[in-house]
């Protein structure tokens, strides 16, 4: 009996030291305590709602404007609270639709890059040996190329469009997930749980997906959020340079790019999209930080 108790205790220990999600209610309680995170979270929810509901809440069509009513400062022209741009398009509508594009690019990209990255990371970590060397070699090689440059070349060759932008970013974003997944898998691979599963003859693929993956999901999720933030920033940069989202579609980065020649007399063209890009990226970062500590008991002390 004594032996059994020890074994049970051990398994409990292993479970507790594993970063994993608590109940939603517990998370919510933690969130309310951390006001910075709460603030970021509410902001993100608002941005999400704004993007999803764009067709319903946008006061005007973001791509058509009244050319005789151009470059109107915020509040000057009735019906255009944040003013109009160089072609007389409503700033509010463009900001709303621009957010939709930015978030769409961010999320779709990271869904693909994380799926590929995590799978390859699992494979490398679990299989080890040659598979590990090859996959991690690939990761190292791709890390050696500056990401923005690769994306630029990619889009220059294929032509700028939203789809090509997503492809370029996803092609460049899987490595961080592979690396993280692999390092996490390695710590589990030889643990008693995996050993037990192997011992009763569970197929390797099932071990990977059913027994290892759920246990590493928490840190992967925080990385996911961080990556979305990074991609939104990168999309803004590419669109600003003219290699991202193409006019007349609105995107925050493109709005800054199109507005920069008018900046001396029309500050609102770049200040508003600038604030939104910056605030969204910041909020995602804050939220991701909070998520790390909230779901990882080892860092409990810091999350309050």
């Amino acid at each position: 009996m004594a032996n059994l108790t020890v074994a049970l205790d051990q398994s409990v220990d292993i479970r507790d030291s594993r970063p994993r999600f608590y109940g939603l209610r517990r998370l919510a309680r933690k969130m309310v305590k951390d006001r910075l995170a709460l603030f970021a979270f509410i902001f993100l929810i608002l941005i999400f709602l704004m993007s999803i509901l764009a067709p319903l809440i946008s006061p005007y069509d973001p791509t058509t404007g009244d050319i005789f009513n151009r470059l109107k400062a915020p509040g000057v022209s009735p019906g255009h609270i944040l003013g109009t741009d160089a072609l007389g398009r409503d700033m509010v509508s463009r900001l709303i639709w621009g957010g939709r594009v930015s978030l769409r690019v961010g999320f779709i990209t990271v869904v693909f890059s994380s799926a590929v990255g995590v799978f390859l990371g699992l494979l490398a970590g679990y299989a080890g040996g040659k598979t590990d060397t090859i996959i991690m070699g690939l990761v190292d090689i791709q890390f050696a190329f500056p990401g923005m440059l690769v994306a630029l070349v990619f889009v220059m060759v294929l032509g700028p469009s939203e789809l090509h932008l997503i492809e370029a970013f996803a092609f460049n974003g899987w490595m961080v997930f592979a690396r993280l997944a692999r390092s996490l898998v390695v710590t589990f691979r030889d643990g008693p749980m995996v050993e037990a599963a192997k011992a009763i003859g569970v197929r390797p693929i099932k071990v990977m997906l059913k027994h290892i993956l759920p246990n590493i999901l928490a840190p992967i999720t925080t990385l996911f959020v961080l990556e979305v933030a990074r991609i939104i920033g990168a999309e803004a940069m590419m669109s600003f340079l003219g290699y991202g989202i193409q006019p007349p579609t609105a995107s925050w980065g493109l709005m800054i790019g199109e507005g920069r020649t008018y900046f001396p007399m029309a500050w609102w063209l770049i200040i508003y999209p600038g604030i939104l890009v910056a605030a969204t990226v910041l909020a995602l970062n804050v939220f991701s930080n909070w998520l790390t500590t909230a779901v990882d008991p080892l860092q409990k002390g810091q999350s309050g």
Binding site: F39, G274, A278
Partner: peptide, 24 residues
Amino acid sequence: KRFKSVSLMLLTFVMATGLILTGC
């Protein structure tokens, strides 16, 4: 206090981004 620091951070970030993106 925390909100103040948040808004300060935000402001710095916005300004930095603005400067970088407009290439002023």
